[in-house]
Computed example of a mutant assay.
Amino acid sequence: MRFGDTGPGVSKLGRDLKQLGYFPGSPASTFDDALRRAVRAFQMQNVDSQGRPLVVDGVVGPVTEWAITNRLGQTTTPASAAASAPNVPAGGSATARAALAVAIAEMNAGHGEVGGNNMGPHVTRYLNGIVGTPNDWCAGFVSFCFSTSGQPMPFKYSVGARDILDQLKAKGWAVKPDNTHPPLPGDIIVWWRQAPSSWKGHIGIVHSYDNGIVRTIEGNKTSKVGSFVYTLGAIDKLLGFARVP
Rank of each mutant, 00 (worst) to 15 (best):
P185D: 12
V175D: 06
G204M: 08
G21Q: 11
N70H: 15
A174E: 10
K200R: 15
T6E: 14
N179H: 10
K169V: 06
N179A: 12
F42W: 10
G58Y: 13
K237N: 15
C145H: 12
G233W: 14
K18R: 15
S29N: 06
D210H: 12
G160T: 11
F155E: 10
G58I: 11
V60D: 00
P89W: 07
M153H: 08
G51I: 04
S227H: 11
T148D: 05
V39R: 07
A242N: 13
Y209K: 04
I213V: 15
D33L: 08
Q167M: 13
I130R: 15
A67F: 03
Q45R: 13
I203A: 04
L20N: 00
M107C: 01
R15D: 01
A103L: 02
V229N: 06
I68H: 02
Q167C: 09
P245V: 08
D163L: 05
N135G: 07
N117L: 07
Q151K: 15
G4P: 01
D32L: 02
R36G: 00
Y157H: 05
V60M: 03
W191N: 13
A83C: 05
R71V: 00
L238A: 12
D16S: 00
S143P: 12
S49P: 00
A90M: 06
S223M: 14
A174C: 08
F144Y: 15
A139E: 06
A81R: 09
V102M: 11
Y209C: 03
N179F: 04
I130W: 13
P177Y: 03
A96D: 05
Q194R: 14
A109K: 13
T75C: 04
F23N: 00
T231V: 15
